[in-house]
Every structure is written in structure tokens, then in C-alpha cells.
Amino acid sequence: MATTASPFLSPAKLTLQSRLPRATLARRSVRFPPARAQQQQPQVKEEEEEEAVANLPPSQDEGEQTSAARGPAQSLPRQPLAESKNMSREYGGQWLSSTTRHIRIYAAYIDPETNAFDQTQMDKLTLLLDPTDEFVWTDETCQKVYDEFQDLVDHYEGAPLSEYTLRLIGSDLEHYIRKLLYDGEIKYNMMSRVLNFSMGKPRVKFNSSQIPDVK
């Protein structure tokens, strides 16, 4: 993993950290031991082409390993001492993100308790799932979205860490959530603050196989 190709390049291991909406945080804030996170070591998003090429062969080996020992995607451990860093104006006052209604992806560490936004850790992606609580989530459906997120992150490995790539990942996740909704695995939260059914009005006897382009 020692990359000495260019000086500015801190090898950004693209790893996964999942976070849940505030109302359900206590129920789902169990931190797993980072077993799969160890396997994610060669998931490198590089700014440069030669780095990506250099890291491709181990990633394919790793892909076989993970497909062999494929467990559920696990979040990285929490960092209790994290602080907000690099958020001021001299750092540009901006961040890499893909924010749609149900999926917020940030290329930073965001602490689930204190909301510390640590932009020095751009090797991590933080996923906020449905912050407006439009759907009713269970642990299983959350885990499905996390697994899909991990698969997408694996799939886009080697792509430049840019807003475009994050938007591709976030859009695929939104399509996946819509597929879950059409398959009846999740449903609208009727107690949410706004009820505008942003993924289509509720209907009966309908699933995603009737929609050709849902995913």
C-alpha cells in the first residue's frame, strides 16, 4: 500500500461507514468489528491513472476473496475523539458529496453522535440513509442498502474521487431504494414530517419487475 508515486497523493482507501437517521440511531448504532473493512484495504480511489492501474491486480484478487467470504457490509468503528476539521474558508469551504433526498454521501468522517465533520479523512465515505425518515427502515433493509453501497463502492474502485462518481453511486442507491419500495420491502413512513411520496404514490399489487428501467 506504500504509494510513493506523487507527493500530494495520500492513498485514499475508499472504505465504508454507514450512519443512520437520528431518530433510529440508538437502535442501529451497533458497531461491528471491522472484519470486512480489513478486506477492503485495496479499495483505492486514486487521483491518478497509473496508481489505479497499479492497484488493479490486487483488487481483482481481493474481489475473489470477498466473493468467497462474502459477509454483510460492516461499518468502520466509531472514532469518539473526532473533531470537525478542514471546514473553514481557507480550505475552500466545500466538501465532496452527493446529496439526494434519501442518500447523502460525504467523502469525510461524520461522527454519528456529535456530527463532527472530519474532512481530513477523505479516505472514508459516510452514508446517511434517509435523513428525512420518509421510509420505515428495519435492520434487514438497512443492511441491504449498506451491502449495495459497499458493492457499488467496490464497483467504482479506481474511479477518480469526484462529485461525479459520488453522484453515480448515490443515484444507483436511490434506484435501489426505489426497487426495494416497489418490491414491497420498505414502505412509506406515514408519520414523517412531509408526505409527498417522492418515489411514487403507494399502490397495490405492483413490483419492480413491471418497470423495465428501475434498476
Binding site: 469526484s162 461525479y164 453522484r167 443515484s171 409527498n196 411520496f197
Partner: peptide, 23 residues
Amino acid sequence: SWIGWPLRKDYITPNFYEIQDAH
């Protein structure tokens, strides 16, 4: 960070989630 040239005739629009069904 956009990829591609949107007004070329061979441009394929990426399947981004942005147009919502909500009214």
C-alpha cells in the same frame, strides 16, 4: 467534475436520480 459533453448528439445522459415523482 462532469464527464462528457452534454450537447453532443452521441451523449448519453447518465441515469442520475434527480427527477422526483412527487408533485
